[in-house]
Nucleic acid binder design. Structure first.
Length: 258
DNA sequence: AGAAATGTTGCGCT
DNA sequence: AAGCGCAACATTTC
């Protein structure tokens, strides 16, 4: 699935593509994951101008001139398609039809992607927000949880997924199996840096190789969480281990604190 | 051809 | 009793 850097890139491309357009009609094709009544969603968005698209955590927020926000979560396999005239996707969930005959559709073969009107503000800070500093992480890491599980917990920090958790922990040279409250202060500082650097750098790479995309995921440049790579950039063999049914990639270069 | 991939939720176990 | 693991969701992509 797309993770934070992909979603940031999509948001910036969506701004170029559809910001300023007016939604004439909203078609809701799959209500199973819809978090508000279908009619409320239509009423809240139709005839409104889309002013801005923003990524918040792993969601995309579409902001409208009447103050309403359409929140989309792509989950594992949700994809957005821009079209002119008529969309011909399978597994459609929601479609926005603009006044100029173009449109945007969210489709997902698993039907897990979802839409909501005016998503509630969450307490957990976004991974790229200024709140993620040494003081915040020091407090947050007062836990016996493993550091990787903590980074993945959206109630703690919003936006980090499985692949980037591995990339960030390798960058900070901390083993994913480390217990959070055993990680020394200088490593917490390294972690603050790595969270920002890895995510910001990834978005740059995606932008460079796939400048116009609004769907999919680009991960061929990942250094550690990458099935095709045998060694880290510094020559250590990459191991992987299934932890709670997802793969964790790591090397011996990462210190284990227990 | 058959496995791998992936977020979230909710539940049961320790 | 906090934290972990697992199942379910369903199909595409390698």
């Amino acid at each position: 699935m797309p993770e934070l850097p992909d979603l940031n890139h999509f948001a910036s491309n969506l701004n170029k593509l559809v910001a300023g357009k007016t939604v004439e009609y909203v078609e809701v094709l799959n209500t199973s994951k819809l978090k508000v009544p279908k009619e409320a969603l239509k009423k809240g968005l139709e005839k409104q101008q889309l002013t801005e698209v923003e990524r918040v955590g792993k969601e995309l927020h579409f902001k409208f001139s009447n103050g309403n926000v359409l929140g989309l979560h792509l989950m594992l396999n949700g994809k957005l398609y821009y079209f002119d005239g008529k969309s011909n996707q399978k597994y459609k969930i929601i479609e926005l039809l603009f006044g100029d005959e173009t449109g945007l559709v969210l489709a997902d073969f698993q039907g897990m992607a979802n839409a909501t009107l005016n998503p509630e503000e969450k307490d957990a800070p976004d991974a790229l927000s200024a709140t993620i500093n040494y003081k915040f992480l020091k407090e947050t890491l007062q836990s016996r949880a493993s550091i990787k599980n903590l980074l993945l917990d959206q109630h703690v920090i919003r936006g980090i997924g499985n692949a980037y958790a591995d990339e960030i922990l390798w960058d900070a040279k901390i083993s994913p199996f480390s217990i959070a409250n055993k990680i020394p202060d200088d490593k917490i500082k390294a972690l603050v840096r790595s969270i920002k650097e890895v995510l910001v750098d990834a978005e740059k790479q995606i932008k460079k190789s796939h400048s116009d995309i609004i769907a999919g995921e680009i991960r061929d440049f990942l250094k550690i969480h990458n099935a095709k790579k045998k060694e880290s950039p510094t020559g250590s063999p990459i191991y992987n281990k299934v932890v709670s049914s997802r793969k964790t990639y790591y090397t011996d270069e990462q210190e284990l604190y227990k």
